[in-house]
């Protein structure tokens, strides 16, 4: 059993958890993730390890509530326990001194990006970060990202904070101003990663993305997480989750994420009807 040691709301539907999991913390490296199961009849869901504290034997997860499992978890309190955390899984990020690193995070993607940006900074790189969100209240981890970046640019779709526009606009602008990037690391919604990669390919900036396909075991056993990279089938859980963004077939991955759309809706609605718990985002949608 893994006790929730700490819990903090970072934004609408986004929560940070510190959980007791000494085995997972012991050998974890940035870029790795865990599979968690929060109750007996529960689903296994993959979540990036945002941080670990080996002295405390704890791991930090930052989770956006988007469906039944993540919403149900958000109802749990400090002191409650979840039964299963398996990991750390996936390959570690390749951390290296390359010069100037551009970190691009979109929405919840900033959570997996943070430990990588931190490691890149610790390795001696100059780090410029671009954080994008639909609107100000959906921005997360700004302070933490500032602490590990030499420069931070914020973009929001509605202009409520930073520049109005998309992260790709901000990349173009930085490059036009003369910034030279040796490497880009981009994590966020697939559609954002797709467009960032199209741009950085044109700009000639090698780009690493972290993919989030649907997973079951996370150990290479089911092939559910398969993605096409450079024309070859890869299992994201063991060959990734990070890949060369210029080689990824994003359209296929985005389609595959829809596999269980209907079932996910049924699960969420059923849960909401039973408990009265709803996603803040859908509450807002309903008020419109």
């Amino acid at each position: 059993m893994h006790r929730i040691l700490y819990k903090e709301t970072l934004g609408p539907d986004v929560t940070l958890y510190r959980l007791h999991a000494p085995d997972v913390a012991a050998y974890r490296e940035p870029g790795q993730f865990v599979l968690i199961r929060i109750c007996d009849e529960g689903e296994r869901i993959p979540i990036t390890l945002a941080d670990v504290d080996r002295d405390e034997g704890s791991i930090t997860l930052i989770i956006q509530s988007v469906g039944k499992t993540t919403l149900k978890l958000a109802q749990m309190e400090i002191g409650d326990s979840i039964p299963d955390i398996a990991g750390p899984l996936g390959k570690a990020t390749h951390i290296e001194m390359v010069g100037h690193v551009l970190c691009v995070g979109g929405g919840i993607g900033t959570a997996p990006l943070y430990p990588v940006a931190k490691a890149m900074k610790d390795a001696g790189n100059e780090v410029t970060s671009i954080l994008g969100a639909r609107s100000e209240n959906l921005l997360i981890l700004e302070d933490r990202m500032r602490a590990v970046s030499d420069k931070v640019v914020i973009t929001t779709d509605d202009g409520s904070k930073g520049k109005k526009g998309l992260v790709t606009d901000a990349i173009s602008e930085l490059v036009e101003q003369g910034a030279k990037f040796d490497q880009c690391i981009c994590m966020g919604p697939p559609i954002m990663m797709k467009f960032v990669c199209l741009l950085t390919k044109k700009l000639g900036i090698p780009t690493v993305v972290s993919l989030n396909p649907i997973m079951v075991d996370g150990t290479g056993m089911c092939g559910g997480c398969r993605v096409t990279v450079g024309g070859k089938t890869k299992f994201a859980c063991v060959d990734g989750p990070e890949f060369d963004g210029h080689e990824v077939d994003f359209d296929e991955m985005m389609a595959r994420l829809n596999t269980y759309r209907n079932e996910e809706k049924i699960s969420l609605e059923r849960y909401s009807d039973e408990t009265g718990c709803r996603l803040e985002a859908s509450l807002k949608g309903g008020a419109k």
Binding site: E43, R44, T259, Y260, E264, S267, R270
Partner: peptide
């Protein structure tokens, strides 16, 4: 499913 959370096609 949906008593258990894991869906199947």
């Amino acid at each position: 499913f949906p008593q258990s959370d894991t869906p199947i096609v």
